[in-house]
Design a protein around this nucleic acid. Structure first.
Lengths: 239, 239
DNA sequence: CGAAAGGTTTGATCTGGATCAAATCGCGGC
DNA sequence: GCCGCGATTTGATCCAGATCAAACCTTTCG
């Protein structure tokens, strides 16, 4: 049993599905009442601090989870320490890799987060028994694949300025409270994490952010809080 | 009806599944005899020349296909013409994007290829009716997602030399005839396509290839034919 | 409050890969 | 066999983003 797993089953609280954020999410939205009850009996809600690892790269995964609150980053690290963030997940996404025992990436809480953890074996059985659940997870996988490929275009072909604008656009789009044209949100990532998502250095990220600020495209209320007066402008810059 | 679609149904030949390369592939391997027969009745085998488009970016997709022979590249292009290859697919992979009407990328034959084309509606129905098929496509989607994320690491964090070595390793690994340590294969991509896969320019690709040749890591028998005497060496360089 | 420690910004300089330019190769057509 | 044309290689130069270095904020904690 890996460390994270044992932590989970000491730190969790019992699950109440009825008022849950993820009740109609990818996993739970596809289950019958009976299945939901069974899954609930074996699930625990758990708080994870920003920076805490949920799944370690290379580790065997004995559980899956749903994100209830917060942002989770998916990372790959090379033996020499170079690092790339390969995805961000938001509530109520499902976190895990069905059909494969060993994770090829790590999942870490980017912000303080809450997750609902359940045993891998149980969900695997439910996937096999429930076409609707398989379909729902298949759908999430395909959406993540589209997002990954879109990001490959960003990594391979966009300039530093376009990359930073793309990231701000991505996050603004996933942060809830926004009007049609303006947005106002907290960055779930530090400058170092942004650099690791964009394939840049922190210095370049910082410089591009101040350039966008000086041009009036964004306001930096604090290093973690951004206001975008005109999302169309931002989108135009991200090309 | 889009152009590619109408072409398909004029250029194809009837399908004989029994001797098919993809009989046990992602789609057909998951079907009952009866379903296979039905799918076969509505499928056509089609030859596509290198460079021909199978699905256009932004187009509505009215069909899916299986790759029987050859290599297919998945591309994204930006309005200003910048281009990124976001995936390579080999026989007997499935090509298509279930659950979504409009393709966010284009699929083009990288080499002369043969594909087996079938109507979208029919396969969508079979997916809904056949958990085993859903599972099989889900599995392919997750494998493609893993590959996409691995490539994000390459695009974001590897040097030009490591990128080229990674590409050669990827292709060598998917080309069949190889001993344990050496490999000998045709490149399915031009220098320009390699550049678009790696987020580099053709000049840089060319220079890195000659560097690898001068170091004895590869032999360039012709611009499209490569020999790798020691795959471990190549893998080490790709980091 | 003041000191220590991260995280972030800003500045100066360097460099890997891009860009611009020109051979050279390879191949199909005549 | 020779010509023409696209693909590839090679060379010279440039520049976007990396690296090295040094402030400058925040937050925390004694």
């Amino acid at each position: 049993m890996d460390v994270a797993h044992s932590e989970v089953f000491h730190a969790g609280t019992p699950v109440a599905c009825s008022s849950c954020q993820a009740r109609h999410g990818v996993v739970c939205g596809a289950l019958s009442d009976h299945q939901l009850k069974e899954l609930g009996r074996h699930s625990l809600r758990r708080k994870v601090d920003a920076g805490a690892e949920i799944i370690a790269q290379g580790a065997e995964t004995s559980f899956y989870s749903n994100i209830m609150r917060g942002v989770v980053k998916l990372c790959k690290v090379m033996p020499d320490g170079r690092q790339q963030i390969v995805g961000l997940q938001f509530a109520p996404d499902f976190v895990g890799r069905p059909f494969v025992r060993e994770s090829t990436l790590s999942a870490e809480a980017a912000t303080d987060a809450e997750i609902c953890v359940f045993p891998r074996n149980l969900l695997d059985r439910m996937i096999a028994e429930t076409p609707e659940l398989q379909r729902s997870l298949h759908d999430q996988a395909l959406n993540e694949l589209d997002a990954a490929r879109e990001w490959m275009l960003t990594l391979g072909r966009r300039t530093a300025e376009e990359k930073v604008a793309s990231l701000l656009h991505l996050i603004a789009t996933h942060a809830e409270p926004q009007t049609a044209i303006s947005a106002d949100f907290d960055l779930p990532l530090s400058r170092a994490e942004i650099a690791d998502f964009l394939g840049l250095t922190i210095e370049t990220v910082s410089r591009q952010m101040t350039r966008l600020r000086k041009r009036g495209v964004i306001l930096i209320e604090s290093s973690r809080h951004i206001v975008v007066p005109d999302m169309n402008e931002l989108e135009k810059i991200s090309a």
